[in-house]
Amino acid sequence: MGNVYQRLDAQTRAFIEQQPMFFVATAPSEGGRVNVSPKGYADTFTVLDDTTVAYLDLDGSGIETVAHVRDNGRITVMFCGFDRRAIIVRLYGTGRVVTLHEPEFPELLAKFGPHPGVRSIIVVHCDRISDSCGWGVPRMSLIEERSTLDRWAARHDVQETRAYRAAHNRASIDGLPGLSAGESDPVGRSS
């Protein structure tokens, strides 16, 4: 039923590009909580090469993925086929956090659609690419993407965004470091 691939082939890439959402799973090195985060917006995920992908890390109420990736790098990205094709694709790998102040950030950012709440970009080098049946996953139809997160981020000025990130994104729920004070500036906005 399942296959393991050495690289992201054309068929797997096409499947990924068609999905309106994906899930990201991470965990700290020692104890703590496993985190699974749903991610939306079709233009926030990209395939960089045959074994590397990236996605926009947008504002949120927590910072688990960033904290866990910085702690140990372990990350799994999962795509589910909710339409006619009953398949699940998992990308297991090592992630890294690319922030606004790193030289590669502008080039990476250009690969995504515009979003006002970008905190960082998560780049994942895949060491296992696999698929499995999605026979237990229900068929569902996309009604529309929610614009709520983008509207929320656009309503906040630079100071409000910095304050929000200071209150909610400095540490994970298990106390691991998240965004530092210097990483709290909104992308593309000045004070």
Score class of each variant (00 low, 15 high):
Met1Ser: 09
Gly2Val: 07
Val4Thr: 15
Tyr5Ser: 05
Arg7Leu: 13
Leu8Cys: 03
Leu8Asn: 05
Ala10Asp: 15
Thr12Tyr: 02
Thr12Asp: 15
Thr12Gly: 02
Arg13Cys: 11
Ala14Asn: 03
Glu17Thr: 06
Gln19Asp: 05
Met21Cys: 14
Val24Phe: 04
Ala25Tyr: 05
Ala25Trp: 04
Pro28Arg: 08
Glu30Asp: 13
Gly31Phe: 04
Arg33Val: 10
Val34Phe: 07
Val36Ile: 15
Val36Gly: 12
Val36Cys: 15
Lys39Phe: 10
Asp43His: 12
Asp43Arg: 08
Val47Ala: 04
Leu48Tyr: 03
Thr51Ala: 13
Thr52Glu: 03
Val53Arg: 06
Tyr55Arg: 05
Leu56Pro: 03
Asp57Ile: 00
Asp57His: 01
Leu58Lys: 14
Leu58Trp: 01
Leu58Gly: 03
Gly62Arg: 15
Gly62Ile: 01
Ile63Pro: 01
Val66Trp: 00
Ala67Phe: 04
Ala67Val: 06
Ala67Asp: 05
His68Lys: 03
Arg70Cys: 03
Ile75Ala: 02
Val77Phe: 06
Val77Trp: 04
Met78Gln: 12
Met78Val: 15
Phe79Glu: 08
Cys80Gln: 10
Gly81Cys: 11
Phe82Leu: 13
Phe82Gln: 09
Phe82Ser: 06
Arg84Ala: 14
Arg84Val: 14
Arg85Ala: 10
Ala86Ile: 00
Ile87Gly: 00
Ile87Lys: 08
Val89Ser: 07
Leu91Gly: 07
Leu91Thr: 06
Leu91Cys: 12
Tyr92Asn: 10
Thr94Glu: 09
Arg96Glu: 07
Arg96Pro: 01
Arg96Thr: 01
Val97Pro: 00
Val97Asn: 00
Val98Ala: 04
Thr99Trp: 00
Thr99Val: 12
His101Gly: 08
His101Ser: 06
Glu102Gly: 00
Glu102Ser: 01
Glu102Phe: 00
Glu102Met: 07
Glu104Asn: 02
Glu104Lys: 04
Phe105Leu: 01
Ala110Asp: 13
Lys111Ser: 12
Phe112Tyr: 11
Gly113Leu: 09
Pro114Met: 03
His115Pro: 00
Pro116Thr: 09
Pro116Ser: 11
Pro116Asp: 10
Pro116Phe: 07
Pro116Trp: 11
Gly117Pro: 02
Ile121Asn: 01
Val123Gln: 02
Val124Gln: 11
Cys126Ser: 11
Cys126Asp: 03
Asp127Gly: 06
Arg128Thr: 14
Ile129Arg: 05
Ser130Glu: 15
Ser130Ile: 05
Asp131Gly: 07
Ser132Arg: 13
Cys133Arg: 12
Gly134Gln: 06
Gly134Pro: 06
Gly136Ala: 13
Gly136His: 11
Gly136Val: 06
Val137Pro: 03
Glu144Lys: 13
Glu145Met: 03
Arg146Val: 05
Thr148Arg: 11
Asp150Tyr: 08
Asp150Phe: 11
Asp150Trp: 09
Arg151Phe: 09
Trp152Gln: 14
Ala153Cys: 11
His156Lys: 15
Asp157Pro: 12
Gln159Ile: 07
Glu160Val: 13
Arg162Val: 08
Arg162Ser: 00
Tyr164Arg: 07
Ala167Phe: 02
Ala171Pro: 00
Ser172Gly: 10
Asp174Arg: 04
Gly175Phe: 09
Ser184His: 02
Arg189Asn: 08
Ser190Ala: 12
Ser191Cys: 07
